[in-house]
């Protein structure tokens, strides 16, 4: 019965981790609660203990440190979207958080929440994977760092161990001369989650060839999909439409796409093909703009 729900507001991470340990399976972390409330109301989960991490100091900052942007787990989507620092250093991140849902959801949903939820149809995960972000977590055994590409394990499943809490994410600032893009493709209403979302980073060498390409596809499969062997096709090459097309085809072939109300597996495969190409093109244009003299 919902009547027996207990709500804790610990003020230290230690305390929060302790509460999670004490109540085990019965306990859930609450951040913005945009996902949690829906799951509880639909009676898909029925925790008896909720541990809010909103009162713990130090989880809500955005800062630049050691060549990376570090964003605390309790930072709201809307704050990432509007952050001057993020816009200047990793604009694609601000853009991506800006296309999530609507402003009401963005004002509540947190960075830790979107990570821990690991919903296949979220936008930010693909960008985190493409940018080689690292997730800082804290648990009973202390702190550790998990690369984004290892963090998302399956549908609603992450590499978090029981009683571990996401505390922050570090996104390396892309090197000068690189361009980034995120394309969210919605197949129904504009406020829908993505049918597919593609994040790309292109680093152009001074001769205009591609020095580095990273492409991650979200919402097409259980977890964000990235294929270094396909990315490698671009290195040292000029990113011609023919080449981006081949990379799009390779991603389309490699991903075992899923089927839902936003599109069949066949349609998703076709959308991966199209949007991988488009994301690379946009990122290439951005890289060219940035490296252009003046």
């Amino acid at each position: 019965m919902r009547g027996s729900l207990v709500f804790y507001h610990p003020t230290t991470l230690q305390e929060a981790i302790g509460l999670l340990g004490e109540h085990g399976e019965e306990a859930k972390v609450v951040a913005g609660s945009t996902a949690l409330t829906i799951l509880m109301r639909q009676r898909l989960i029925a925790p008896s203990v909720l541990v809010s991490i909103g009162a713990i100091p130090g989880l809500d900052g955005i800062e630049e440190r050691d060549g990376a942007i570090r964003i605390g787990a309790m930072v709201r989507h809307r704050d990432v979207e509007l952050s001057e620092l993020v816009r200047a250093r990793v604009p694609v991140l601000a853009e991506t958080f800006g296309v999530v849902a609507n402003v009401r959801v963005r004002n509540a949903a947190t960075v830790g929440g979107v990570l821990a939820e690991s919903d296949y149809a979220s936008d930010p995960p693909a960008v985190f994977v493409a940018l080689d972000a690292e997730i800082e977590v804290r648990g009973p055994g202390g702190e550790r760092t998990i690369p984004a590409r290892d963090f998302f394990v399956a549908f609603y499943e992450t590499a978090l161990e029981p009683n571990e809490i996401v505390t922050a994410i570090r996104i390396p600032i892309p090197v000068t001369g690189s361009g980034t893009a995120y394309h969210k493709f919605v197949s129904r209403s504009s406020e829908d989650r993505p049918c597919v979302g593609v994040a790309a980073l292109v680093h152009l060498a001074s001769d205009g060839t591609c020095a580095d390409l990273r492409v991650a596809v979200g919402a097409a499969a259980e977890t964000p999909q990235r294929f270094p062997n396909v990315e490698a096709l671009a290195v040292g090459q000029t990113l011609t439409p023919e080449l981006t097309g081949r990379i799009g085809d390779a991603y389309a072939d490699a991903i075992d796409t899923l089927d839902d109300m936003r599109g069949s597996a066949w349609y998703r495969t076709e959308m991966v093909r199209v949007w991988v190409g488009r994301a690379i093109e946009t990122a290439t244009d951005a890289a060219a703009d940035r490296s252009a003299p003046g």
Binding site: I38, Q42, N102, R188, S189, S190, E191, D192, M261
Partner: peptide, 23 residues
């Protein structure tokens, strides 16, 4: 409204879409 064996598959506003102002 999408049904499977009489069971509604999108009976909530996360899964069922209506037009938003942006549409």
């Amino acid at each position: 409204m999408v049904f499977d064996g009489g069971q509604l598959q999108n009976g909530n506003l996360g899964d069922y879409m209506i037009a938003s102002i942006e549409d």
